[in-house]
Design a protein around this nucleic acid. Structure first.
Lengths: 150, 150
DNA sequence: GTATTTGCAAACTGTTTGCCTGGGC
DNA sequence: GCCCAGGCAAACAGTTTGCAAATAC
């Protein structure tokens, strides 16, 4: 009771049971440094408890998304990625895409300038469109040095 | 010659042939100016020329993406959406997505604040990663009023 | 004329569903 | 003990691939 993760209460109050597979999936998401695919999670979960199936991973993620504990992303790879909503300093992360070689650079070293700007924009959007902004993603498209060289 | 669409030259210089299916797909994208799925495009294309197959739509989109004429998005629906890249020198536009109902709002009324900020970031990225930035896209994720209400 | 592009069908991949068993409370 | 939750296999949906025929240049 003293040191339960923040999502514990949300699971409980929703009436969902706290099962071992769910704890394992949450633990994997908590310790993950980046966005994992369902299969990534399944592989790790399977190592921890071989009886866990891929279906359970999907159903657990679906539940966690519905409860607002997990967020789902797709980055154009044809498969989804998942992360805990509670990401520390959750400014989201940005992508730099080369239009020629399709290389993607993730960068998350967000400056104060960016933080301030984003909170201003989110404020504006909230007022104008009455959206409660939870996250954002920025994509920059360009041509990397190698591709410019050729 | 005087009034070709901006992407015409890019197709030509890539060595790709200007075929009827490609023209049709581009025309659909141009007049839609929205986020169409491959199937949406296929249905429209099929109406204009019934012999066009879904495969051709996918292959055409793949080519156009590689040439930087089209951008691909995935919004967690399990299928991709496609959009013509903004004309070079254009204003760009941003997206507001409701995480519950998946409604998308495009907004392009970009403030000076935003313009200045974006040019600062692009500058930073250019210096840091040596990318020549051509375009950017911002996505904001949130919950719209209707979905918050329920 | 020749290499690229197309269209069909079949293969693949990620995700979801049906159904029965197992486990949390 | 009652049901929710899990596991397997099969179904599904979107996308990709192999190959022969059509077509741009």
């Amino acid at each position: 009771m003293k040191d339960q993760p923040w999502w514990y209460g949300r699971l409980k109050e929703s009436g969902a049971r706290l099962t071992e597979p769910r704890e394992i999936v949450l633990e994997i998401l908590r310790s993950a440094r980046e966005h994992l695919t369902a299969t990534d999670i399944y592989i790790q979960a399977h190592r921890m408890k071989p009886s866990i199936g891929l279906t359970t991973v999907y159903r657990t993620l679906e539940l966690l998304i519905k409860l607002g504990i997990v967020q789902k992303f797709e980055l154009g790879e044809g498969k989804a990625r998942f992360e805990l909503v509670d990401k520390p300093g959750g400014e989201g992360h940005h992508h730099l895409v080369c239009l020629k070689c399709r290389k993607i650079i993730d960068y998350s070293d967000i400056s104060n300038d960016e933080k301030e700007f984003l909170s201003r924009v989110e404020d504006r959007l909230k007022k104008k469109y009455d959206f409660k902004i939870l996250d954002h993603l920025m994509w920059f498209y360009g041509v990397c040095r190698e591709c410019r060289g050729s």
